[in-house]
Design a protein around this nucleic acid. Sequence first.
DNA 1: TTGACATTTTACGAAAGAGAAATATATCCT
DNA 2: AGGATATATTTCTCTTTCGTAAAATGTCAA
Lengths: 403, 403
Amino acid sequence: MAAATKTISARPARTARRFKIKRDTVALQQADLLLRVRAGDGTSRVELARTMNLAPSTVGIYVDHLVTEGFLTEGKGPTRELGRPPTLLALNPQGGRFIGVDFEARNIMAIAVDFSQRPLKRFHDTIGAAEPVESIVRKIEHAIQTVSAGDDRQLLAIGVGVPGVIDPEKGVALSYKHIKGWENVPLMHRLSHRFGVPVFVENTVRTMALAELWFGQGRGLRNFICLGMRSGLGAGIIIDGQIYRGADNRAGEIGDWPCEATNNHGASKRGSRPAFTRLEDIASLHTLRDRLGAPGQAEAPLEALLRAAAEGDKVVLGFLDRVAHAFGLVLNQLNCAFNPEKIILAGALAGFGEHLRLPLERNLTAFAPPSGAPAIVSSELGAFNGAIGAAALAVHQWKPVPP
Amino acid sequence: MAAATKTISARPARTARRFKIKRDTVALQQADLLLRVRAGDGTSRVELARTMNLAPSTVGIYVDHLVTEGFLTEGKGPTRELGRPPTLLALNPQGGRFIGVDFEARNIMAIAVDFSQRPLKRFHDTIGAAEPVESIVRKIEHAIQTVSAGDDRQLLAIGVGVPGVIDPEKGVALSYKHIKGWENVPLMHRLSHRFGVPVFVENTVRTMALAELWFGQGRGLRNFICLGMRSGLGAGIIIDGQIYRGADNRAGEIGDWPCEATNNHGASKRGSRPAFTRLEDIASLHTLRDRLGAPGQAEAPLEALLRAAAEGDKVVLGFLDRVAHAFGLVLNQLNCAFNPEKIILAGALAGFGEHLRLPLERNLTAFAPPSGAPAIVSSELGAFNGAIGAAALAVHQWKPVPP
DNA sequence: TTGACATTTTACGAAAGAGAAATATATCCT
DNA sequence: AGGATATATTTCTCTTTCGTAAAATGTCAA
């Protein structure tokens, strides 16, 4: 019977999609384990087993593997308590390197960190007022190259903090109004081909929030808001320890936040709507510069503005007061919605320190409901905030290869 | 020596906390499996294996177990495609029952549903204007008893939608200003002892959001906001398919949302802060009733208000217009923060239907940023919305016992 | 110094679940 | 009708991970 067509029929029908479960799970578990070692100081196998809901023996196997792979080291634990002291696990700085890049309209920051996320090398570059997209991308590549040079530890991943709206899945920068022609830039694809490692893209304000979550004022918190105030204005929202992006990756785009204008004299009648102002037109570096200098003039550097505030300059202080007033209301509104544990001020404007934070805090409590208002603090991470967060993003997205 | 004290020393030292991982995991997986069967119409073993990242053989074991336990039934799948048709899995209505209760200042709603969440019995009761706490709790118990009677299917869990601030972990109602003396009511403890099943407590607006997520306008969405407009005002926030509660369980308490008042003539000068109104003082049923009747008078029933709106009553329409104006701004602000896919109107005020939704939509788009505004829709679940959500809460928190 | 104790880590038999192949059951195409 | 094809489910084997017990390793008290 037509044996040729049968071909022994040894080729079995295959289910359309294959199932590869365990390897992926193990890699995820080990990545999670490493993150927990990063989070806690002085973690032992048993402690990890408890928090990760795994059997101690299983954690032992994982840890042994990660130690032989060079990602973890076993610190001789000088702990003094009852019972056998735990062998403390620590990240091996030699396990590899990560790079974080962060940029906005006029500046690029890059940082390289070792496996324990200690900084190795920093780099700063500026962007011209009307620089083309390709030139900016080249500067990003150059910044990565620069902080990467002169270290033989393996590069594991790169994180990029991008201004404007992005698609984190595809790693594409979708739009940003302060850079001309900045649309659909396939950063992930381009950089991962250039450097041969995984590249993760995120909005720059959200990377700043990540930096605060891991190294700054947000350590140990589950829900907080990080306000990024630079050229533009945005909020990085951390919910349950995770970045919140919204339905359309536009969550936290509070630059468009409508504030009712203060000069709407009795315009509450039906039909005639009161005018309103966008929050970004009140509270951004752009606005301050517009107020200070004649248009087209050379921009006042940030340091000059900070000095002016310290010296009591009327224009600058008036600006800060207006910002504090508008923002005080907005923060209360955000509080009603999110009920965050804390609000963190970051970005260049946060450089004003108490000149900004104190009036903000006054307005925050003045408008607050009976249930109170969250604490408001200034970031202490400095200008590389976003780059540090971008590196942290790379650290947290990266997974060790399965055995 | 002293052999008596040794007691053979056969009692080995035990690790302080025992590790019971697998049984718990299996119960969680099976609960998750049931939820996925609830979510999707016509689910097969393979489909579940794919979406749950499990091997088909594993899912087979789980499903077999759930079938023998009486929670699932295997529908003969009349599907017409290529390949062997899947055996469709369906929830077994006989698997048990859940009860949801929901109340606010003046009303109690209760509903019993079968295992497939089809309604079995409803009950409505009213609460007097100054009823004591104990009496209200008794009415809750009575409502549960009433919808529970006359059915021999096993009662599996009870969900309770509570107004005001609650502690979902401990199942305690913390505070609610519209019921006198409503503070620290241990609802979970009391009801679970009374009825002998697990009891889950949640804010009533959030249970309304849950109802929308599972049965209403929020089906299939990951991020949306459900506005509950009844005696008070609140927002149920769904993030990534989960209830979001905030740091302090106060997320979505938008009754306190500060709206800048419309009559602040040029009060933008430093020092003199403009007055502002709480959103709840503009847009709640209380406010409308205050506007309509003289205080102390008998309250206008909701039906009369709805009829008045349909007949073009000036006071009611003016109220709705003011609500729409204030809320249009607030919704845009919420949109900037959350970037939800949709906004759902629920609660008694949603009964105004297009009389409320249309002006709201107009204001929403009028104030919207260039990136647009989310869709706004009215709930279609009716007055038992919150109770349905409370039952859904019970369904989703409940876990089958491990084998 | 010695032994009780508490806790962490390791060892190992047992169970759960993955993975691949076999089987079942449909359609479609000669 | 009969086989090729496609997909779902089941079977079976083998890996992974659990869970218990044992070993290790420190402190504390007599």
